Simulated scan of single mutants.
Amino acid sequence: MVNKIEPYKGIAEIYDEIRPSYPEKLIEDIIFKTDLNLNNRILEIGAGTGKATVQFAKKGFAINAIELGEEMAAILKKKCTSYLKVSLDIAPFEQWESDNNEKFHMIYSAQAFHWLDKNIKYKKCHELLKDNGFLVLFWYTSSNDELFETKGIRENIDSIVNKYVSSYDIESEKPQRREHDGHSEDDERKSEIEASGLFELVEKIEYTEETKNNAKQYLKVLNSVPAFASKVDGLNQVAVENMNREIEELIDSNGGYVGALFNFTLYIARKIS
């Protein structure tokens, strides 16, 4: 059986440096639409390096964060040393147990809920929520409405990567990285929430933001994605350096940056008692 390693192992620092935070309007909408107040306890699933955690902690909310990856959790813990109302448990959500059978007003998951076992996650969230409590899920993905110049650059980058991956011997003994591209087809996330029979979808809200990254930043973006990192995990250092140089030269010769539109999608669901 092939050993599957944690998806962000070895790339947690890059992830934290280069990945975007969430639109402030999205955070404000969550607070308003779930009637969240400072007396409520919040559970966060898949807190990662604390992108969303810090946004809520800055506003004074009490958060019990759960994160599977030890490297991600170490960054999160360091960030939250000054937020005394944030606690952290390093564990898979499927195995995690609440202290004293605590019930939460809101459970949220940012960019992480798709990693969880769908046969467990909705049932367990339902059990952990107070009556009429909220399950709040949000993700971002690159928009299908790509900037014209960006689409061409990305296609050429894919060609460069595929050339190196196919031309060099991959170290077969290296464990495989768990990966998931995070994309949802035909709004399967909405369908999944409704199919659980445990939650009523109250509202779905979308936001769009534009980002720009220079060549070095864009390489970090690529390496922060498990699906990309898994492609090059077994490449030797010389191959990686040559591949990176070709990608940088491509970007620099095409305006010096890669622009992208990001779609953030927020799902607010209420527990059905």
Rank of each mutant, 00 (worst) to 15 (best):
Y108G: 00
E24G: 09
Q95L: 14
A57E: 08
P175M: 09
S196M: 10
D233H: 03
D233V: 10
K220S: 13
V240P: 01
D16W: 02
K33C: 06
E241W: 04
K59L: 14
Y122M: 07
W139N: 11
E13A: 15
E194Q: 11
D131S: 15
R41H: 13
L266R: 00
V161H: 08
D181C: 07
E173M: 12
K123E: 13
G255T: 04
W96Y: 15
K33L: 14
L135Y: 04
F264L: 07
V258A: 01
N132M: 10
E249Y: 10
T141W: 08
A215E: 12
A47H: 06
E155A: 11
K204P: 00
F32I: 13
T81V: 14
E70H: 12
Y164H: 14
H183D: 00
L137N: 03
E206R: 13
K231M: 14
L222E: 04
K220D: 08
A47M: 05
K78V: 08
F61R: 03
Q217N: 10
L261N: 14
A229L: 02
K151H: 13
K174D: 06
S159Y: 08
L116S: 09
Y122D: 02
E71I: 01
K271Y: 05
L84F: 11
K77T: 10
Q176T: 12
E206F: 01
I42L: 15
I90Q: 06
A65Q: 07
L116A: 11
H183W: 03
T208I: 13
R41M: 05
A73K: 04
I160K: 10
K130Y: 07
N100G: 01
D169V: 11
E206S: 15
E246C: 08
T49Y: 03
Y164G: 01
N64S: 15
F228V: 04
V225M: 14
M106G: 07
T141D: 11
S196G: 02
F32P: 01
K124D: 05
Y168L: 09
D233N: 14
A91T: 06
E71F: 02
D187A: 06
E24F: 03
K25V: 10
V221G: 05
D89C: 11
S143Y: 03
E249D: 15
N236P: 04
Y168S: 11
M1W: 04
D186L: 10
H114A: 01
A112M: 08
I251T: 00
I153F: 02
N64H: 15
E6C: 12
I247S: 03
Q176A: 13
I268K: 03
W139C: 01
A12S: 15
S21W: 02
Y207P: 02
